[in-house]
Design a protein around this nucleic acid. Structure first.
Length: 290
DNA sequence: AACGCGTGGAT
DNA sequence: TATCCAAGCGT
């Protein structure tokens, strides 16, 4: 349904959208899917060069599906959360096996792919196939919290009310709804940012509930801070970096030197093996998965 | 339904 | 320097 926000935000997007390659007219559904997975919890600037490499090397799902999963992990580089690379590789194989090598168009089929949840399924269906879905990512949730609910930040976990609100604001025409979804995301990414919103440049400042309320500070429960130094996550990252940067299998000693605590190191390595990110060879060495 | 899962730039 | 946080997902 159109609201007071619809036209100003669509117009703002038309004039201010970033020129991102996965939004180009020649971007394929596969390119959109790869971008969405890479962008999960990861800034655009860091994704850009890796996405370009992937598209040049694996222009179709079948190209990635033909590789060992370890190549996807290696080419993931330092994007973080490397299980995403593994699942993207699994998805490529599922797309070949179940969908003839073409990225499926239906939300349900997309959702059934590994590593694709409600957000990513809606995003691909909207941005690659111009369908009408509520696309609720962290940007959209924050924009709607401010614009409509008058609060600085959305609830910690997504609520049914947020989904209903997002659906209620979706323009009726599917291609317009898809444009609206990406426009709200872009507004959140460029103007209605988490830390220091640029309200002076906001196209809907005059109808913003948070602005009208005097921009009250968030008063909900404190967001859990993610400490990193000394965690298993950091340890896993160090271990996997050794394998990524090596040409082939590495000796256990090469892993041992990057983390001093042996108990934590073994636990992290076991975790990587359990996740399928590391392959323990019969000769005692370790490698990226075949 | 919390929690684990990487990384690095911005403030 | 420490903290925040960036197009989430799976368990």
């Amino acid at each position: 349904m159109d609201s007071a926000y619809t036209e100003p935000i669509l117009d703002w997007y038309a004039a201010n959208a970033r020129d991102l390659p996965w939004r180009a007219p020649d971007a394929t559904p596969w390119g959109v899917l790869v971008s969405e997975i890479m962008l999960q919890q990861t800034p655009v600037a860091r994704v850009l060069p890796v996405w370009r490499e992937w598209m040049a090397r694996w222009p179709r799902p079948a190209d990635l599906a033909a590789e060992p999963s370890g190549e996807a992990v290696r080419a993931w580089g330092r994007l973080g959360y490397p299980r995403r690379a593994l699942r993207l590789h699994e998805s490529a194989r599922a797309i070949v096996a179940r969908h003839g090598g073409r990225v499926p168009e239906s939300h349900a089929d997309l959702l059934a792919l590994p590593g694709i949840g409600a957000y990513t399924a809606a995003a691909v269906a909207s941005f690659a196939f111009r369908q009408r879905h509520a696309v609720l990512d962290t940007n959209v949730r924050r924009v709607l919290a401010r614009l409509v609910s008058g609060e600085e930040f959305p609830p910690r976990s997504q609520t049914a009310a947020e989904v209903r609100l997002a659906e209620s604001l979706l323009p009726a025409d599917p291609p317009t709804a898809a444009r609206w979804s990406v426009a709200v995301m872009e507004l959140g990414a460029l103007i209605c940012t988490a830390r220091t919103p640029r309200c002076v440049d906001c196209p809907v400042l005059s109808s913003c509930a948070w602005q009208a309320a005097g921009r009250p500070a968030y008063d909900g429960p404190p967001r859990r801070g993610q400490t990193y130094a000394g965690t298993d996550r950091q340890c896993r990252g160090r271990l996997l970096a050794v394998l990524r940067d090596a040409d082939g299998p590495v000796e256990k000693s090469a892993l041992d030197v990057v983390w001093s605590d042996p108990v934590q190191r073994e636990r992290a390595l076991d975790g990587l093996v359990a996740d399928g990110l590391v392959d323990p060879l019969d000769d005692g060495r370790y490698a990226l998965p075949a």
